[in-house]
């Protein structure tokens, strides 16, 4: 039993550690932190494997653990960062319709928008997977992605 559990965790690690790492990196924005996160996520996965009831795929479950872990970890960090970032949006609003490039606009996305756009455009997950990871409905995913696109299309040149 223990052997089986270990093996399946190993298989999952081989298949999904890249996804977990990339997702962690997109949230934590630090290479070392993201590497730690991968280890931590799989440790948590092994510990809590018995509670997995197959309601979603292993992949989305792993990514949910990743998300929970990374957001908790970045909480302390973001509290510090928000003070610095607070000054930025105003500066952007002043020249909002001048020459902001699409990349600037993408960098300025809110945390939620950035995350959903990352999951769709970089990680290439389906709407269902995104919905499971973010714990929202598929319809909500559709609407959110649509809104982000509507906003960003202005910055296309």
């Amino acid at each position: 039993m223990i052997f089986e559990k270990k093996r399946s965790a190993k298989e999952l690690f081989q298949t999904y550690s890249g996804d977990v790492f990339n997702y962690s990196l997109s949230i934590l924005k630090d290479y070392d932190d993201a590497k730690d996160a991968v280890q931590e996520v799989f440790i948590r996965f092994i510990k809590s494997e018995e509670t997995f009831r197959g309601e979603c795929s292993y992949k989305t479950w792993l990514l949910t653990i990743t998300r929970n872990y990374c957001y908790r970890k970045s909480e302390g960090k973001s509290n510090q960062l928000q003070k610095i970032d607070g000054a930025l949006p105003n500066a952007y609003e002043m020249n909002i319709d001048s020459s902001i490039s699409l990349n600037d606009a993408l960098a300025e996305l809110s945390k939620d928008e950035y995350e959903i756009f990352y999951l769709r455009e970089y990680a290439g997950y389906s709407y269902l997977e995104i919905a499971e990871i973010l714990k929202i409905s598929v319809d909500n995913v559709k609407v959110k992605l649509y809104r982000v696109r509507q906003r960003l299309r202005k910055y296309l040149k």
Binding site: S26, L102, L106, E121, Y122
Partner: peptide, 9 residues
């Protein structure tokens, strides 16, 4: 937009 966003990420 899709293409450029992907490049950005």
């Amino acid at each position: 937009l899709k293409e450029k966003s992907k490049d950005f990420f």
